[in-house]
Design a protein around this nucleic acid. Structure first.
Lengths: 157, 157
DNA sequence: ATTATTTTGTTGACACGGAAACAAAATAAC
DNA sequence: GTTATTTTGTTTCCGTGTCAACAAAATAAT
């Protein structure tokens, strides 16, 4: 197995591991809240005028799925929807005070994760950081271009 | 946002993007086969004496899920189960000729993905590769240790 | 040897996410 | 200004994965 494959495979395994572990911790701390719900709360907390479409694109999920999650979050009172006077189609979301509490707990958890992984990151030099970041950015742009190709192709069929 | 967060977030976004795109391509080529099924076929093709438990641990999924997937794969004739004379409990899997065909197609696809991403990897120096790999390995071991802690704690409760 | 515990795999109920079909509003085309 | 197309969001149906409960075999404890 060459190094490219090692990077990809290691990448995948590491990611699965991290998601699994953090999900475990998350469910322990935020017992009644689903990961996807918390994830949405996080996004809505960070981005003003979030809507179903933006959330879906950001999470690589369907609008259908997001629509259901946000519906639940509204029922539970963590987010509320609002519209703008000049647009009767788009529906935006913002956190309620209750939602902000959840967001706070979520941020605390992330802080704990960072603390937990501090030792690993401390061994990384500035150059290594920059090298990894530039690699990821290049790779990401590359995939964006590939995805764009798909979009064009799928519509031209 | 500091560099650690950038790495983690970039990591997550990049991974989501890659999974989404490759899933798209995969479903285009292997129309009737589900990603999880193909994933299992890949693992069983690589590892002798695969069983439900090993697959579940490797994929960070429940035995329940794997049990259902493998059941389907047997019904479809892609894998077959066998046991050893000295153990009437454990059930192992191996690919059938038909399963090997799927595995072949799957490998072809991976080759295409590598080809597609070649340009990105060509810009990576040997030192950068080693640096990334050692980082991932360290991080992975670190998370393993954390997961191990969980196991001990959850049993000592 | 007998009993208790752990490991391994399966099943049924349920929740989550995707695909498709849909309605309503906004935008583009003419 | 009217019609066609696109965008945005929702709902229904269905497949997949998790959880909990379970049975059977293997292993540990005594």
């Amino acid at each position: 197995m060459n190094k490219e494959e090692q990077v990809i495979m290691g990448f995948r395994d590491l990611f699965n591991k991290m998601v699994w572990l953090n999900k475990f911790k998350m469910e322990d701390r935020l017992k009644d809240y689903k990961p996807s719900e918390v994830h949405c709360i996080e996004y809505i907390g960070r981005n003003v005028d979030s809507n179903v479409t933006k959330l879906a694109e950001s999470f690589y999920m369907t609008r259908s799925a997001i629509s259901k999650i946000t519906k639940k979050l509204i029922e539970k009172g963590f987010i509320e929807s609002y519209q703008k006077s000049d647009n009767k189609k788009e529906i935006y979301f913002r956190l309620t005070p209750q939602g902000k509490v959840i967001n706070k707990v979520h941020e605390e958890l992330h802080k704990e994760f960072r603390e937990r992984d501090k030792a690993v990151f401390e061994q990384v030099t500035e150059e290594q950081f920059d090298s990894m970041l530039s690699f990821m950015e290049r790779y990401s742009r590359h995939l964006d271009a590939e995805i764009k190709k798909l979009g064009v192709d799928s519509k031209s069929e």
